[in-house]
Design a binder for these strands. Structure first.
Lengths: 343, 343
DNA sequence: ATCATAATTTTACGCGCGTAAAATTTTTGA
DNA sequence: TCAAAAATTTTACGCGCGTAAAATTATGAT
């Protein structure tokens, strides 16, 4: 290894015998140069260890190779997991993922979008906060940057949307619960931030009515992202004040269900399906921890992989086409019933 | 609002009547210009909406305002939580956090470091993978970029280290368990990737011996970051093959404990403290979900906030001083016993 | 060997900003 | 009111790369 370090493309051009513009071309797409030159470049690269300066690259490129990923709350394993998958797909696609979490905060989401805008990303994948998103700000952003929404949709923003088919997923769960025991009550937050929550509520009501049952909502307070805590507190009150009109509880999401299970445990209610159990509890999403609750949580699995894959594919093809989507397409994936011991 | 957009500092200089170099100074530190000029600039900024081009800024600055944050596994709520706190502190300090997860993968960690290096961050906060880190690569990185390690330490890398005092934290837990019931067995992974795990094992053994007890290790297989799954599988085997020589189990971390609890539940063992329970299970870390397990998990809380705060303070003062640490300081924080129902 | 084609090199310019030094203006304090 | 100090402007250069057009060279099929 020759000692002196290569500080820029110019110097690499000198030692490799390849001209700087050709090197520039190589770094943008190794396949775009002749085989023999590629070989020379890669040999030089091995002995000299050089990486182009990202800032200089991005300053001059019309489009950067950055793809922003914005999630509402990264400390939620659901989003952590889907972000992980998306990150990998973005890298495979030859782009650089920039992961930002809004930490459940409106201001932070706006800040994230501003921050992204000054990075001039080629595209952005965004799961918005939902009800507490600043729609005007998001609109301005989407006008500037090709954006694909996932998980939940606000307004008609973005070039496309990929998410769960809530009516379907809640439907099969309600049907399952009705067929295998008592019809469920629906346990949820009173004013959830996530639009999916409203869809789930409505779908619960519709399915119950379709099955000739009377829907019953238990709505608890809470406006943070500490869903387990909210589920726990609300669960305690619900159980202690005997508000349960059924022995079966369908929670709007798994995190609420995890909290509810903790409350049921504390109250001495045995959760499970069958005569020896006092309560059935089901969740929704197939949260990474759902299989490790006590008892393991019956739930509806979202197809993480499909949502991630299709979202990335969409943004990549948008970027490649260099134009905006003709029309905004909404793609919904079916949920899959996961039968476990809790219901 | 005048219609035409400001495209660069030059144009802002024209419309604001302030010279470009002064604007440059303002954006680097608004306090560094005269009050009257600051006012003028901010007025212009309100009507024209301009943000400096990050790439051009960082290309020319000797030091960027970027601070890298590398965690081994972001889908682990522990790291998600500590990363969240660190991010906020970094922003408060006037820097831009760049959050990267190694996803439990050696190659990804190296890639993260490479990626960071080409960003020329002012400093980096890193929680390494541990045993599976590429120490040589990390060493090269630390030689180039001021780096502060947290959570776990490999070699003598970095300018400083902030983490948990494992001997203390495991010590108080073992003492607590011994005083309130049978001495615990220690449930852990056979070959954990995290150096802390070894410290905990040793501390368990030492404390037990100090208390005149016979240490007993239950070591289960697994080399992924799916700790709950590993704890669950290992727990099932342990319980079914009656390998438990005590009714008290101390798990090396909460995620293993969560899996173990699931296994105990499946086997019909009631977990808790007192005569009516078959098993006591304790964890370690006070994982965000520990309070919602059934039963709620007795554990030792790490002082997230302290570790995050001190780590950020350390890197910020290093950056400000513009030189490397005189000597590598290790700061360990005490754990705090959290008594819950599981043990 | 010959020529059309593709790849590369040369040349030249620009991106948007940091930064340094010298010249100028404003502020401060006596 | 005036000189010293502080802030600002002017001037000038450079950072490392993208990119376009023209000139040159290599490739590959006939």
């Amino acid at each position: 290894m020759k000692s002196d370090r290569i500080r820029n493309m110019e110097e690499l051009a000198n030692v490799s015998g390849i001209s700087r513009p050709t090197l520039s071309k190589y770094f943008n797409d190794p396949e775009s140069v002749r085989n023999s030159t590629r070989k020379k470049i890669e040999e030089a690269l091995e002995t000299y260890h050089y990486r182009p300066n990202i800032y200089a690259m991005n300053q001059n490129r019309r489009l950067t190779k950055n793809i922003g990923i914005v999630v509402p709350y990264l400390a939620d394993p659901f989003f952590a997991e889907i972000a992980r998958v998306i990150e990998n797909l973005v890298i495979e696609g030859g782009f650089r993922p920039i992961l930002l979490s809004s930490h459940g905060d409106t201001q932070q989401e706006i800040e994230n979008l501003n921050s992204l805008q000054s990075i001039r990303p080629a595209g952005v994948l965004m799961a918005p906060l939902g009800r507490s998103s600043d729609i005007a700000a998001a609109e301005r952003f989407c006008a500037e940057v090709p954006t694909v929404l996932f998980d939940n949709s606000i307004g008609d923003l973005g070039e496309a949307f990929f998410g769960l088919d809530n009516p379907q997923s809640v439907g099969i769960m309600v049907e399952y619960l009705c067929q295998t025991g008592e019809p469920p009550v629906f346990f949820e937050m009173k004013t959830p931030t996530n639009p999916n929550a409203y869809k789930r509520r409505n779908s619960y009501i519709e399915t119950m009515e379709r099955l000739g049952q009377t829907p019953q909502l238990i709505q608890v307070d809470g406006d943070t992202w500490d869903f387990e805590q909210i589920g726990y507190q609300g669960g305690l009150e619900t159980i202690q004040r005997r508000k349960l009109s059924s022995n079966t509880v369908l929670c709007s999401n798994d995190r609420l269900a995890i909290g509810f299970l903790a409350a049921a445990y504390e109250c001495g209610l045995r959760v499970g399906r069958g005569n020896s159990f006092a309560l059935r509890v089901a969740g929704h999403d197939d949260h990474p921890y759902a299989r490790f609750t006590c008892p393991p949580l019956t739930t509806v699995a979202q197809d993480y992989a499909a949502i991630a894959t299709k979202s990335v594919e969409a943004i990549l093809s948008l970027i490649e086409s260099e134009e905006r989507a003709v029309s905004r397409v909404t793609t919904l994936f079916s949920g899959k019933l996961i039968e476990r011991a809790s219901a």
